[in-house]
Write a protein that binds this DNA or RNA. Structure first.
Length: 427
RNA sequence: GGAGAGGUGGCCGAGUGGCUUAAGGCGGCGGUUUGCUAAACCGUUGUAUGGUGUAAAGCCGUACCGGGGGUUCGAAUCCCCCCCUCUCCGCCA
C-alpha cells in the first residue's frame, strides 16, 4: 500500500511511475475522496470537541445542582450530527482503503522501463551451458525412462499440474529441500521456520495477494482460508502488527513449504511436464530490514540464492525485471534463470524482490527508529532459494549421461546416499 | 462438537458510568553514582489522525482498552451480536 500523504503530495510522480507498469491508477477519485475526508474530519472533530465540553459542564452543574436540561438537549442534537458525519466518513474511508489496496507499488528508479519480459535487463551470467557429445534429452523423457517423475498418476490422483516424484526422484527432491535449508541456515544466517500452509485473508492482504488476485488462489470455502501460493505469505505475516525493536533488525527467515497456485488464465501456456505446476515445493527467504539498508539487502539476497546454484554447478543468469514485468507488490525484482539443456531454454527458479514499505504498510510491520524513537515501517524482501521442480528439470538435463542415467552432484551425495540414478535403481 | 475463563499501551497487568492525558511493574531513553560493567537511585517515555507551522519542534483538537451495534448529555466500564485465545471434556495424527 502506498502512503496517502505521499500520493497527495506527489500525484504526478505516482501516476507516471505506475504508468511505467502499464497501469492507470484511479488517483483523481482517490484524491477527491481524500479531500472530502479531511473536510469531514474537521467538521466532526469540532462537533466532538463541543460535545466533550458540554459533558464536562453537565457533570459540574449536576454536582452543584444547576439546570442541565438545555445542555443535554444541545448535546443530543450534536450527537445526531456527529453520527451522520461519522457514517459518511466510514463509507469514504472504506472506499479509499479498497482503492489503495488495488494500487501496485512504485517501481524503484533503477528499474528498467519496459513492457514485457523482452525488456528485462541481463545483469550477469554464471558458468556456461553444459556440453554433450550426444543429443541431450528433456526432463520428461528422462523422468519417464528412469521412472522418477510420474505426471499421469498425479493427474489421476488430483488433476494436471500436480506432480508425483517416484523413488529416487522423491528422495532427490527431498534432498534438495534439506540442502537449501542447511545452506541458508549455515551460510546466510537465516533462521529456519516451519509455518502453516494455510492462511487467512488478513495475511494475504498483508503481502498483496488479496484483494486483487483471489482467483489465483485455492480457497477453503467453509473456513475462508487459503492454501499458500508461497511461503512469503506466512513468513512475512509472522510479524504482522508487530513493533520490532531497532536492535532486532535485520531479521532473516527461511522456510520450506509447498506452494499452491491455480494459475488461472495460464492454461495452455506452459502445460508441459514440470515447468508450470499447481503444486510445487520451495524454500523461501524473507528479510525484515531497516529502510536505509534494503537495496544492499536485496543484492545479498540474490547472492544467497545464487550460491545454491553455484554449489550445484548449474549455469544461470540474473535478470532485472523491467517495470512492466514487475510483480504487484515489488519495487524492484531480480529473476534468476537456469539453463535447461534438454529444453534448450532458460527457466526461472527464483524471484528476489524488495517491497520497500509496501507490504509493511499493508501488514502494519513497524520498528522503532533509533534517532527519533518513533515507529516507522520496515522494509521487507523475499526470494526463492529455491523452487524444486524447475531446478530438478535443469539438473536432470545437465547431469544426464549418454546411457540415459543421471549423475548426482557431489554436494548432494551425502544427502542422497547414492551417486547415480539408472533405469534399474540407484548406485 | 460440549462446558468454562479471558482479550487493556512495546510487554506484563490493575481498572464496574464523568477525577483515565489508563494505576503499578518490566522494557526503552536521559541522568546521578562508578576504574569498566552491573546494581541502585532520580527523571522521562503511547499510537493514529485533522488543523496550524517552509520543515523539524511546538501548539490546538479528535479517536483508540479484540471487532461491530446499542443505552446515555457522557462508555475500557452497562446491554446485544460476532471474532479470537486459553483451560477442561469428547474425537484424533
Amino acid at each position: 500500500m502506498l502512503d496517502i500523504k505521499f500520493i497527495r503530495d506527489n500525484p504526478e510522480a505516482v501516476r507516471s511511475r505506475i504508468a511505467a507498469r502499464g497501469e492507470i491508477p484511479a488517483l483523481d477519485e482517490l484524491l477527491e475522496l481524500d479531500k472530502r475526508r479531511r473536510v469531514l474530519i474537521e467538521e466532526t472533530d469540532g462537533l466532538k470537541a463541543r460535545r466533550n465540553e458540554l459533558s464536562k459542564e453537565i457533570a459540574a452543574l449536576s454536582k452543584s445542582g444547576g439546570m442541565i436540561t438545555p445542555l443535554k438537549e444541545e448535546s443530543r442534537e450534536i450527537g445526531q450530527r456527529i453520527s451522520e458525519g461519522d457514517e459518511e466518513l466510514k463509507t469514504i474511508q472504506e472506499a479509499m482503503k479498497q482503492t489503495l489496496l488495488a494500487i501496485p507499488n512504485l517501481p524503484h528508479e533503477t528499474v528498467p522501463v519496459g513492457k514485457t519480459d523482452a525488456d528485462n535487463e541481463l545483469i550477469r551470467t554464471w558458468g556456461s551451458p553444459a556440453s554433450f557429445d550426444f543429443e541431450p534429452k528433456d526432463h520428461l523423457t528422462l523422468g519417464e525412462q528412469l521412472k522418477i517423475m510420474d505426471f499421469p498418476r498425479g493427474t489421476r490422483v488430483t488433476g494436471s499440474g500436480f506432480p508425483v516424484y517416484a523413488g529416487p526422484g522423491a528422495i532427490l527432491e527431498r534432498t534438495l529441500i534439506n540442502f537449501f535449508l542447511d545452506t541458508h541456515r549455515a551460510r546466510g544466517n537465516y533462521k529456519e521456520m516451519s509455518v502453516p500452509f494455510v492462511v487467512n485473508r488478513d495475511s494475504l492482504i498483508g503481502t498483496g495477494q488479496l484483494p486483487k488476485f483471489e482467483d489465483d488462489l485455492y480457497r477453503c470455502d467453509v473456513d475462508d482460508l487459503f492454501l499458500i501460493p508461497t511461503a512469503e505469505v506466512p513468513l512475512t505475516n509472522l510479524h504482522r502488527d508487530d513493533l520490532i525493536a531497532y536492535d532486532d533488525l535485520p531479521i532473516y527467515y527461511c522456510g520450506y513449504t509447498p506452494c499452491f497456485r491455480r494459475e488461472a488464465g495460464s492454461y495452455g501456456k506452459e502445460t508441459r511436464g514440470f515447468l508450470r505446476l499447481h503444486q510445487f515445493d520451495k524454500v523461501e527467504m524473507v528479510k525484515f530490514v531497516r529502510p536505509e539498508t534494503s537495496y544492499d539487502e536485496l543484492e545479498s539476497l540474490v547472492k544467497d540464492a545464487c550460491e545454491i546454484l553455484e554449489a550445484l554447478n548449474i549455469h544461470y543468469r540474473v535478470v532485472a525485471l523491467c517495470s512492466g514485468d514487475l510483480g504487484f507488490s515489488a519495487a524492484k525484482c531480480y529473476d534468476i534463470e537456469i539453463w535447461a539443456p534438454g529444453e534448450k531454454r532458460w527457466l526461472e527458479v527464483s524471484s528476489c524482490s524488495n517491497f520497500e514499505a509496501y507490504q509493511a504498510r499493508r501488514a502494519n510491520i513497524r520498528y522503532r527508529r533509533k534517532e527519533t524513537g518513533k515507529p516507522d515501517f520496515v522494509h521487507t524482501l523475499n526470494g526463492s532459494g529455491l523452487a524444486t521442480p524447475r531446478l530438478l528439470v535443469a539438473m536432470m538435463e545437465t547431469y544426464q549421461n549418454d546411457d540415459g542415467t543421471i549423475s548426482i552432484p557431489d554436494v548432494l551425495k551425502k544427502y542422497t546416499g547414492f551417486g547415480l540414478i539408472t533405469p534399474d535403481g540407484v548406485q
